[in-house]
Computed example of a mutant assay.
Amino acid sequence: MSQDSRRPPDRPRKRDVNGWIILDKGVGMTSTHAVAAVKRGLFAKKAGHAGTLDPLASGVLPIALGEATKTVPFVMDGRKSYVFTVAWGVETNTDDAEGEIAGRSDIVPAASEVEALLPRFTGQIEQVPPRFSAIKIQGERAYDLARDGEVVELVARRVEIHRLALVAHEGNRSVLEADCGKGTYVRAIARDLGRTLGCLGHVAALRRTRVGPFTIGEAITVDELTEADVLRPVEAALSELPSVAVSRDAATRLMRGQPTILRGRDAPLAGPIYATCNGTLVAVGTIERGELVPHRVFNLGA
């Protein structure tokens, strides 16, 4: 056997891939593994996600590639939508089906009782995050402390739930839909509904259907990564922001991190906004005294 025949085949070189993959993550896969699968499937150099989904959950997981990673905060700040099933009668230490039983109740609420309670959990409310969450306590993740058996006391935070609706109810289970803002925990909604009803409860199934501008209708599975036209442009994350087209000279200034004067009647008066040159994303910034001040610049060949 020759030395060449024993040499392992060359691995495909990683390449610069810029844009968004809107993944429909399956149950059982961590968000980290999902990012790794997309990165490996597209031979991409750089990737990250916009909002963790627990292994138990499925649905929309936006994955940013290359220059798109600079727009992740704009997606994470957007509204999120979920469909989730609450199992009544059992509370767990994780507030979902993966945890250990922390309490039981023989009470089974009627659909009318559940529905009547939902307005109290709509709007701006105070919510205590689950003990098993990624929130940091003195530099340590809450879930790491909880797994080590430490007592985790989390402070209530103000969150906004735009819509909470009952869509199905049968036996000891209710299916609900929620539209909520950044920092809201669906597991905490289920826990608090159960406690208020006196029957206890936890999330038995969870599917995310929207993150910012990205919806489940455009999401693909890991197996569909090889198909064409699945990569969304970097600026897809910025669709809810105003935009302005700038000249090549202005684009050069922005890409150097320098502000540029915005001219014309249609120039936005406030920010944040994003700028394009010849249809290519150049920068995201704010308006200050008639100038666009860049906070993020993009190397997309404008």
Rank of each mutant, 00 (worst) to 15 (best):
I22G: 04
A204H: 02
R120N: 12
R79V: 14
L166P: 11
G271W: 01
L262R: 12
A250S: 15
I189Q: 08
A146H: 12
V159H: 11
L238A: 13
R104M: 11
L241P: 14
G290Q: 07
L42I: 03
S243F: 10
R256L: 12
T252I: 14
L206N: 03
G41H: 10
A156T: 05
G19C: 03
G66P: 02
W88P: 00
G41A: 15
I63Y: 07
R11E: 14
I21Y: 01
H162I: 10
I135S: 02
E100A: 14
K39R: 15
N93A: 08
S133I: 04
I101G: 05
K80N: 00
V128K: 06
L254F: 01
V297Q: 01
L206S: 10
A237T: 14
H202Y: 09
E170G: 07
E140T: 12
P259Q: 09
A190D: 00
K46T: 13
P8A: 06
I161V: 15
Y82G: 04
T226C: 04
S243Q: 12
D192S: 12
T92F: 00
T32R: 14
T52R: 08
G279T: 11
L117V: 13
K25F: 00
D95C: 13
P129R: 06
G51T: 03
G78M: 03
V83R: 15
V282N: 00
E67C: 08
G26H: 10
N278S: 15
A111N: 03
N299Y: 00
E170P: 00
S2Q: 08
S5R: 11
R289Q: 12
F84S: 01
R120H: 12
G301W: 08
Q124F: 02
R15C: 02
S247V: 06
L262S: 13
R141H: 14
R147Y: 06
T184D: 11
L118F: 02
D266S: 12
A142D: 05
E98G: 09
R207Q: 09
R263C: 09
V246C: 09
I287V: 15
H295D: 14
G264Q: 04
A250G: 11
G290H: 09
K136A: 12
V75T: 11
E115I: 03
Q138W: 07
P130Q: 07
L118K: 03
T85E: 10
M255N: 14
G19Q: 05
A204V: 08
L238D: 11
G285R: 11
A50S: 11
D249G: 13
C277F: 07
D223S: 15
A57E: 04
Y274N: 00
N18H: 15
S81C: 14
P233A: 08
A146Q: 09
R208A: 09
P268D: 10
N18E: 11
V297Y: 00
E170Y: 02
A188N: 10
V175N: 05
G59A: 05
G181D: 14
A68L: 04
S174E: 03
K80F: 01
R256I: 02
C277G: 06
A111L: 08
A245Y: 05
H162F: 14
C277Y: 04
G271D: 06
N18C: 08
L254Y: 06
A68I: 04
A178C: 15
R289L: 11
E115A: 15
R253H: 15
E218L: 07
T221C: 06
V175R: 10
R265I: 07
V17H: 01
A156K: 07
I101E: 13
